[in-house]
Structures are given as structure tokens and as C-alpha cells.
Design a protein around this nucleic acid. Structure first.
Lengths: 128, 128
DNA sequence: CCAAACGTTGACTTTTACGTAAATCAACCA
DNA sequence: TGGTTGATTTACGTAAAAGTCAACGTTTGG
């Protein structure tokens, strides 16, 4: 477990540009420390970046990713606040479950499409 | 099973704007028939719209959704073409499986976050 | 000592996926 | 006959998420 990562190390590891990482910092999603002006990314920043990109792959916007990352943090505030947090968690869970249903439907349709392709290829061979 | 749907019927059913539906037509994803200038959407257009919006929820771009919809169609062309199609299907399947892993990870983290909230709420009650 | 590699900020540009507004048309209803 | 409703095209606008470019600062190896 390294103490610090440079920005280009992270771009290589995650396949994103420096611009992208700086953009996420501007958005307040990552807060690397600095040596002079140079950014130093800690393991925790690396984990955050993973979480951000995971959210991106699922089509979440930056604002939505921010919300998700917020709920990971230790709960603070009074009971009302925490209850709102629990509601938000339920909401996100519902969205994710919808996405999973969508995925399963598409996968089924892809299976059917593949079968059709294989059938069609068999036909082509016979008719020759 | 109705023969035709109007554009506003579809906007109500799917919760999108007319602009959105016309945009998908411009992109060649839907091809409603016409009576005069007015669009008439058949059941098959309705299904296409469902598939488009499902792709959107998963963060696929219009171009990617177009690809997915293309593979649903009956396979045509010679063997080489169909093999490329099968490869594309495998590619999409891999992407979807990645998305599913992402979802499962986030769901686990949300579970943990919820537990923390519940714990914290219990603490708040005791300390009062 | 100086070029190459790596880093910085700042500003402008681009792509995607629509939103919005204006002007027009057709059908229907009172 | 005129107003309401729902449809059309055309065109410009916009928000999000970066891409791209310029101009500049460090550090490191030959």
C-alpha cells in the first residue's frame, strides 16, 4: 500500500485523462493533498476515483455520484438528518435494482440474438 | 393491442417529451409511419422506445443503443458479417456483466452505510 | 546546463442529448 | 366562424462532462 500516487499513475491505472481527474477535484469529489502545487493522491483518493468511475459506468451523473459517495461517509447530524440519509439509500437501492432488471432483460435478448446468428450461419453452410 | 399510438400518448406512457421522441426518430432509432405529416407509432415503435429508454437508464449513449438494437434484428449478410455480429454481442455482454458487478458492489456498500445509520440512531437514543 | 518528462492553471471548444420558442397547420366543437 | 387542442418544422439555446491548447514551472538524468 503506497502512501502517494501521482496524477499520471492514476490516469494509467484507470484509463482516464488528467483533465478528468482534475475535473473531479473541481467538483469536490476528490481532495488530494499538495506538495507545492503538485497533487498527491492517497490510497483513499484512489478508492474514491474507483467509486466515481464505477458510478459513471452505470450512467450516474456527477451529482448522483456525489450523493452516493456522501452516504458512504460516517453518518453525522441529528436523527432527522440520518433518517433522510436512510431514505436516500432506499432510493438509490431502488434505482440500482431497476438497472439490474434492465441488464437482465438486455442479456436475455442478446442470448436470443446470438442464437439467431448461429442458426443463420448453420443455414448458410447447408445451402452451399 | 392498439394499432397506432400518438406521440403524446407515448410521452405520457414513458414520461419523456415529444422532443425526445422526435430526436430518437432523427437518430434513426424509431421509424413511425405517417398520416399526412402526423406520426403514427405502431406497437413495434413502442417496443423500440422501451428498449431505448432501458439503454438510457444504464448509461448507454445513442450510438451504443443503436448497436444493441441492430443486433436484435434478424441476422443478414454473409458469414463474415454474422461472425462480427456475434463478436459484438459478446462485447455488449461483457459490458453488461461489468455493470452488474458494479451494481452489486454499490449495493453492498449501501447496505453497510445503512447499518451505520441505524447504529448511529441507536446511539443517539441511548445518549439521551 | 539543458532537454525531456511531468506537473500546474486558465480559457476556450466540443459532443451529446435534448429544451425551448416561433410560426404554421388540421381537426373538431360550439 | 372562431377558438381550443394537438400536431408539425425549423432553429437557436443549454447543461454536463470532459477535450484541447497555451503558457508556464520543477526536477532529473546525461
Amino acid at each position: 500500500m503506497r502512501e502517494y500516487y501521482s496524477i499520471t499513475e492514476l490516469t494509467r491505472e484507470f484509463g482516464v485523462s488528467t483533465r478528468t481527474i482534475r475535473f473531479y477535484e473541481d467538483e469536490g469529489l476528490i481532495k488530494p493533498v499538495r506538495r507545492g502545487r503538485t497533487r498527491l493522491f492517497r490510497p483513499s483518493d484512489r478508492i474514491l476515483l474507483r467509486q466515481i468511475l464505477r458510478g459513471k459506468r452505470l450512467g450516474f451523473s456527477i451529482a448522483e455520484i456525489r450523493e452516493i459517495i456522501e452516504v458512504y461517509k460516517a453518518p453525522s447530524g441529528e436523527e432527522g438528518q440520518i433518517k433522510l440519509m436512510v431514505d436516500l439509500i432506499s432510493e438509490k437501492r431502488a434505482e440500482l435494482e431497476q438497472k439490474r432488471r434492465d441488464i437482465d432483460e438486455i442479456l436475455q435478448e442478446l442470448d436470443a440474438a446470438e442464437e439467431n446468428c448461429i442458426e443463420r450461419m448453420a443455414e448458410l453452410r447447408i445451402s452451399q
